[in-house]
Nucleic acid binder design. Structure first.
Lengths: 250, 250
DNA sequence: CGTCGTGTTGAGGCTATTCAAAGTATGTGG
DNA sequence: CCACATACTTTGAATAGCCTCAACACGACG
């Protein structure tokens, strides 16, 4: 079948993502390549799924960066995750009646929507894909734990360094980073909302990190000069990202 | 079959937990009642599963409280979750080669271990249980998001109030809380490790909360005098705990 | 009866915050 | 191509929230 041999670029992104967390067989890949995708372009800052909504589709990132966030009663905003191409920011909506958070585009982005029914059908009949789905969710949980650790027990410099290391490593795992730099379309205000800090303090902390020589950041491009130093500063251990796919069950 | 009609108290706890997140049919319940459990008592503070371990069983809480935590390089400890009877603190170990966190008993506790193979077999053949398993994981993720929001964007008083509300609501959902009070065997130091605060500051914050009249805390028992006030202070909305079980698929 | 874990209180200091303002890109319309 | 608007970054000063250190109180327990 032609579609199995030549998946669309969108499907290829999805397949690549699943292959980064779990091993898939040819029939799994062919199945993923046939998933119905409705693609859409969204501009920077646009809300794609609102808190409280009850989606009937899963959203998946093709291009650009997205984030999930929770608003507090007082208007504070906490970004709880960043999402890069291949990610399924609302994978949980499949098992949750209404979302407890919103999903927005950070940069201008292209996203695809897959009907819940299609996802459920694939999961029910393809155990390897179901395992990949599980592993993706479990890695996400590990990311949450690390973010919690950062917000609870790491200071500003460590938090920023840890996040830079995490995003660089995740992008690398999907083939989306160059050897020493990557596109980071996040404003300092958004960075503050993710790391539980004010934009002002993010700014000073970044200058501090730049002065140390481990990294630089100019017009949305982060360049890593000394990853090991950054790793050290941020207390970063990539183990939780589980970049080695586990074996097939079938 | 007798075991299906009269599940052991341990199995009853597990069944009750799954029923609190998802609807189960009689055959699902009978299946859960037959799961092989190896029970064990652990004393307060004991580590049950160590960071980096590769468990071959899932651990489940029968009695007492447990927690998961991550240590930073500098020796800081971040508690990332509390677990009460019915919870499966290392449910993720089923899909994760090695744990990125440790699991300890907070109070003296009784836990049971279920071999991964037994869990996998049940999930593969009982779609309703698989859905319950998913929903449990998804609710956990919601709890993580709320904790992140607390650590990132709520002050000390709000964090404590939010946690008290959350634990009270979770215990109630499992029938483990009385109308206005519950057993809370967590020290102020542990509370600090969970909320990203020092024990000293937790102490002052608690006094502040007690003075407001919304709650009191004496010898491991928290009494809620005005839940609504506490909910207000902590910006707590129970929606993320998803206490209404969703329907059957079969 | 002393010890250990936990809770309580005080003083001083540091981190990160808020508010305010100015500087710098980037994009837009004339 | 310039003038302007908008968004983002940078800087300074004053302050609040939380931390650390240190000491003491209290109850449980051997």
């Amino acid at each position: 079948m032609t579609s199995a041999l030549q998946p669309s670029p969108e499907h290829a992104r999805l397949i690549r993502k699943f292959e980064s967390v779990s091993r898939l067989g040819p029939s799994d890949i062919a199945t993923l390549a046939r998933l119905p995708l409705r693609t859409r372009s969204v501009e920077a800052g646009a809300e794609v799924v609102a808190q409280g909504a009850t989606p009937t589709e899963c959203c998946f990132v093709i291009e650009g960066w997205m984030c999930r966030y929770v608003m507090t009663r007082e208007g504070g905003r906490q970004i709880v995750s960043f999402h890069i191409p291949g990610d399924l920011p609302d994978r949980d909506s499949l098992h949750l009646p209404h979302l407890d958070h919103s999903i927005s585009a950070i940069s201008s982005a292209r996203v695809a929507f897959i009907p819940h029914a299609a996802v459920s059908a694939v999961l029910a009949h393809h155990p390897n894909i179901a395992v990949a789905f599980w592993r993706d969710a479990v890695v996400d949980a590990g990311v949450f734990r690390q973010w919690l650790t950062s917000l609870g027990r790491r200071d500003a410099k460590q938090r920023v360094a840890h996040l830079i290391c995490e995003m660089f490593t995740r992008l690398e795992g999907l083939g989306l980073a160059d050897s020493d730099h990557f596109h980071f379309p996040v404003t300092q205000t958004q960075l503050g909302d993710a790391l539980g800090l004010s934009a002002v303090h993010i700014n000073r902390t970044l200058q501090d990190l730049k002065a140390s020589g481990a990294m630089s950041w100019k017009s949305s491009v982060v360049t890593i000069h000394d990853f090991d130093a950054l790793r050290q500063v941020g207390d970063f251990d990539p183990a939780y990202l589980e970049l080695r796919p586990m074996g097939l069950t079938h």
